[in-house]
Structures are given as C-alpha cells and as structure tokens.
Write a protein that binds this DNA or RNA. Structure first.
Lengths: 354, 354
DNA sequence: CTAGTTTACTAATGCGCTTTACTAATCCGC
DNA sequence: GCGGATTAGTAAAGCGCATTAGTAAACTAG
C-alpha cells in the first residue's frame, strides 16, 4: 500500500540549487525576460533532475488560474456514442494534439443532454480549461442555454451540433448521404429504403433524411415514407427495421444510416431467404473496421474520426490560447468505400468518381 | 468568446451568509463535530445556492492534499485496447461508480508500455488519487518496476496483468478458453485451429494457448503447432491467418481469441468457397455486439466488461479510502453464447451447460 | 455561584506554485 | 566618474480552499 513518499517541492529544488523559488519557477517554465544566467539555469535544472522533481499540477493550476485539463463530454453515451470505434478514434486524434500541449483529457459521461449541472460543475469548479462536447441532439432551448452558459465561461468546441456562436468540427454526414444515395440511384434502384435513427429532430438524421428525399426526387423517384424506418445505434434495431420493411414493402436497395444497423439489416435479409446485393443492395455509413468483413463486404461512407478528434483538439487549444481559429465551423469530408454489398461490382458501373 | 465571469469564492458565500469562511467550509463539506446550528447551516446553504457557488476543485485538491481524479491508463491503445466496445464499456462501468464518489476520469494513452514517465508525471504531479491500468503485456522487469513505483505512491488497480502485490480485476479469459475449446471438442472436432494474438509472451495469449493445448491433449488430440497462427486485434489479421491456414492445413474448426479476428477468418473461409459451420466451425471470444449479426451468427464467450470497469472502480476507491478490498485479485467469469457459427445447432448437442 | 464542559463559531496558517514588484550589482555613454 | 539602463536575481503576496487551534458564550454539575 502507498506509503508517504517524501514530496519534493520547488522550494527544495531552490535550496539545492542555491537560488530562490522564483528562479526555479522561471527556469522550469522558461519564462521570457527573466534574465537567468546560463550557469544558474543549469544548476536549477540539475537540482530538479537530481531530486526527481515534478511540479504539483494542482498548485500550478491554482496559481496560474487555469487548469490543464480538457473535458471530453459525451452526451447520451449509451444511445449513440458508445458504438463501434467512435470514442476510441476520437480519443486517438484528440490526445495526439492535447498531449503535445500538455493537456490531459477528462472524460465525462452525461446521460441527460440537458443536464446543465454537469457542465456547470466542470466549469465553475475550474476543473477544465476547455470542453469538447459531443452534442448531436436537437438544438432545443435547453441546450442552447447550456451552450451559451458554457461558452461565456470557457472555450468550447462541439463535435456535431452547430450553434452559430460555438465553434465546431463536424463530419459532413449530409454530403456523404447525398453521395451514397446517388450511388444507389445510379445503380438503377428505384425502391430505396432508408433506416434512420431517432429522434428524427436531431441534428443529423433530420438533415440526412431530407437529402435522401431530395436525391430521390431529383431522380424522379417519389418519396415514400413507408420506406423509412427509425432505428438506433445498434444492430438489433437495424435487424428489426429490416424485418418490418420486408414484411410490407418491396424494396431493392437500403440506405442504413450507420454500419451497425446495416449489419443487422443484412442479417434480416438473409433470414428472409434473400441475397445481398442481388435481391437487395445495402449500403451503410461510418466504415467501421468490420465493414470490410461482413457478408458481403459492406459499401459505406468512411468517416474520418481520428481527424475529427484531432481537429477539434486543435481548435479548442487555439481558443484556450486566445487564438481565433481559422474556421469557426469545420466540415470534414467523408469518402465512399465501394465494396460488394451495393452490387456495383455486378453491374460494371462506370467510374464512380464521387 | 469567454469573458471573465465574476468568480464566486467561498469567501463571498461567507460574507453573504454573515459567517466565516471556515463555517462555509464546514457546512458545505458536512464536517462532523463542527457544531453548526441548523439556522446557520441553512443561511450558508442558501447563500451558496443564491450565488451559484461551486468550489474550486484545484484549491480543494491542494488544500486537502488529494486530487479527485482517477486515471484510466490505456497502454498500447492502438494494438489492442481500441477495438470494439472495450473502452466504452469499461468506461461505462467505471464512471458508474466514480461519479457516485465524486471522482472524475482522466484518460491517459500510453503507447509504450514501459514508458515510466507517463506514470511518474501523473503521480508526482499529484494529478490523480489513484490509477486503473490496462496492462496486458508480459510482466517484464521494466513493468514490474513501474508498478512497484506506482503502487508505493498511489493506489492502483490493474485490469489485466497480475502482479502479486498490485490489486487487479481480471476477466477469466483462460477459463473461458477452456470452456469454448471443450465445446468444439464435444462437437467432435479433432482438427481445431487457433488464431491467437501476440506477443505470445503477454499475459493472456500465453496462458490461453496453454489451455487450448491442454484441452486438446485431455481429449487425446495431439497438439499441432502448425494449426496455431498469430493475429492481433483486427479483422485483417484474422483474415490473413485464416488464408494461411487454409493454404496448408486441413481443419474442421477454429478458435479465434477474439471476435474481430473471427469475423476476418470467416470472410476468408467464405472466399475459399467453404461454409461456416458445415465445413469449418468457428468460435470467437468477447461477444461484441455484432457477433449476433455475422453470417452465421458467431458463437463466442461473453466478457462482462461493464462489470469489469465497475469492479475495478470499486476496488480502487476502497484503496483510496484506505479500506482493504475484500479480494485483492478479482476474477470475473465469462459466459458461453452458443449461436450458429459453431454448428452446435446442426448436431443436436445435449444440453451445453457450461 | 463557580469551575468545568459543551456549543457555536472564527482567525490564521498552509497546501505548492506563479507572478508582481522590488533590489543590488554591473554596464555604458558622454 | 556619474546618471540611467540593463542584468540577475529575490521577497512576498496571492490563488481558494481545508483545517487546526483557539475563543466567547451558554450550559451544566456540585
């Protein structure tokens, strides 16, 4: 069990180096215009190394008036965030930049999106220097208020929702939707079902559904709301939605708004004795690692999640440092990955360039 | 952009309530034997609420001599940790208990397992009150030294590796391996391949491979090292390993040490024109959410990851509070989930009770 | 009615650092 | 050789809380 180890403070480093605590602080923090001679500098550095000195971050944070933590706030974790590699990949990109700047990541799960207290404590408690929020719910008054409150006190970047005044980095799921639904249309499909996720008012599903509809109509295909089903972020709902589609509708293609639902849907199609893509073409969205290994391999839109985390981190650190980010709202492009499930390989499609 | 909001301190609460700062602290922290009258208590509470007071955690941590953060240290994140739902599920269980006790989670990615500095800074910098480490590498001198160093200074719980002196919560992957390999044996298989992950010296793969061998030998099946391939934590390696197995060996069953590799392996089997489970039975390990939705649905061992995180959190908080945990090394059981990929449903197996 | 105890608080110190204001010594130009 | 600028530092205050030691008043017990 932990025993009290002798705590090394900057005062002890000062003593050992024969200088004042101030000098130690100046040297260790490389304060400019502090006029420390090279010789003294070296003595301090040596002393610090010999004593194995690591400054107490709590004291630093208190004295500096700024924490060195950044919060990653995950709202609705169980509904949508904790699926596939989303969190790990975001974290990968994020830590890549935060580590460089000496920030640590505080992960906070907020189950109720409009739970203002979680934010309040984090901010007022001075626990974090900035926050990155995964917020994909509908922009209600509640949320707008929370965002406003937060933004007035601490730099903040959202990963999804766009509030005009709050910086954000967002994956262009809407553009991706256009691309992939057009892909299905080009393959000749006219009965294209859609499995979306709810609530339909939320940022992405609403806009994506609209684009799905637009693309169909542009191709002269009437929008049929019977072909739209609402799932969630798990294979089960995709499976259920497909079952229900198969029971009542005749379709030749499916656009599932995430890969995981596409997996479920394909299972349902198989159970019904139908083949993918011969009977029903299926496309997903996200490009999870397993997408390449489903039966058949899933055609999908690739989301740059590592980049997503990285950009959000960079933007936040800019804000923390008082630098105005070049773009207030960054949009990251998705990329279509054509595999087998859409049936493109069967039809000798001419160069899909989108 | 954030403007300086008037910081509310306990001193202001004190003023408003007409008491001393000490009293505010006593009331807010519910200090025992502080003899605060009910009336004063109420005045303080009211003032705090009216001013929207949230104590500065940095100052609290400094004054109390204890941080209220717990580190979740993820070693080798890209190699194995950032697969499927592992991190999210661990986080779910962990935050469940940490939130109750007022601790926050600091996530730290350590790419090099024997990178002592990461631990040192976290500990010496007094950033955390305790650490949970996902350490699944071979117990080298390096690691043993790091663990020793850490444990001498701060409570620590490992999620995988077992150092006799360091508390741990671990999923019984070895026991699970026994169960599921026995399952394949009972189904009549004699040529059972194994796709493990490396490095083979690490905690789990070594022990699991040993059990795989033991189970075979107990059934009178000679261990054939040609049937063992080393993959990793991604479908690609499972796919590659299976390709290579199919090229040279005749097998009727496969035990993949994780579901993701099993997915890859199944893809390879299909490509070779063989059927799962008729030609080759496949079982995985982990029970990821998609396991139920592969073709065919994957038979696997379920890992209680939420429970894993929860137990680790409970154990750590006990240690932090100076309570000796009931068990120093907890072992969590896995559960076999029989689906289609093992072919059990084809053979009318008598009640699989394990 | 007084000494001792309990009740209900408060003053003041310290956690370990950063930072501002200050000082002593040296340098430099004329 | 003297005033101002520069160099190389330091002393001390303060960040916002927890906590220890202490105090004044009220309440007992004898």
């Amino acid at each position: 069990m932990p025993r009290k180890s002798p705590r090394i403070t900057s005062k002890q480093v000062a003593e050992r180096a024969g200088v004042s605590q101030t000098t130690v602080s100046f040297v260790l923090n490389q304060v400019e215009n502090s006029n420390i001679s090279e010789e003294t500098r070296k003595r301090v550095l040596d002393a610090a190394r010999e004593l194995d000195f690591v400054p107490d971050v709590r004291a630093q944070a208190l004295a500096r008036g700024r924490s060195n933590n950044i919060a990653l706030i995950l709202t609705n974790p169980h509904r949508q965030v904790f699926v596939d590699e989303y969190v790990p990949t975001i974290l990968t990109g994020l830590t890549e930049v935060t580590q460089q700047h000496g920030f640590r990541i505080l992960v906070e799960l907020v189950s109720n999106t409009s739970n203002a207290d979680a934010y309040r404590n984090l901010i007022q408690g001075k626990e974090v220097a900035g926050m990155i929020v995964n917020l994909n719910a509908k922009m209600t008054d509640d949320i707008e208020q929370i965002l406003g409150y937060a933004r007035d006190r601490v730099p903040i970047v959202t990963l999804d929702a766009v509030h005009p005044d709050v910086c954000s980095v967002m994956v262009d799921k809407v553009g991706g939707t256009r691309t992939i639904v057009q892909h299905l249309v080009k393959l000749g499909h006219r009965r294209i079902a859609c499995i979306t996720y709810g609530p339909l008012e939320d940022v992405h599903p609403a806009a994506r559904l609209r684009v799905y509809r637009t693309v169909l109509e542009e191709a002269g295909i009437a929008y049929d709301e019977n072909l739209v089903r609402v799932g969630a972020f798990d294979p089960e709902t995709g499976y259920g939605a497909m079952k229900s589609l198969l029971a009542t509708e005749h379709i030749t293609a499916l656009y599932a708004m995430n890969d995981v639902m596409a997996f479920g849907a394909m299972a349902a199609i198989r159970e019904a004795g139908l083949r993918v893509p011969e009977d029903i073409a299926v496309v997903g969205f996200d490009d999870i690692r397993l997408a390449r290994f489903s039966t058949p391999a899933l055609t999908t839109m690739h989301e740059p999640n590592v980049e997503h985390g990285r950009r959000a981190g960079e933007m936040l650190i800019d804000l923390i440092n008082g630098v105005t980010p070049r773009e207030k709202h960054a949009l990251l492009a998705t990329r279509m990955i054509i595999r087998q499930s859409c049936g493109a390989h069967l039809r000798r499609v001419d160069g899909e360039e989108m």
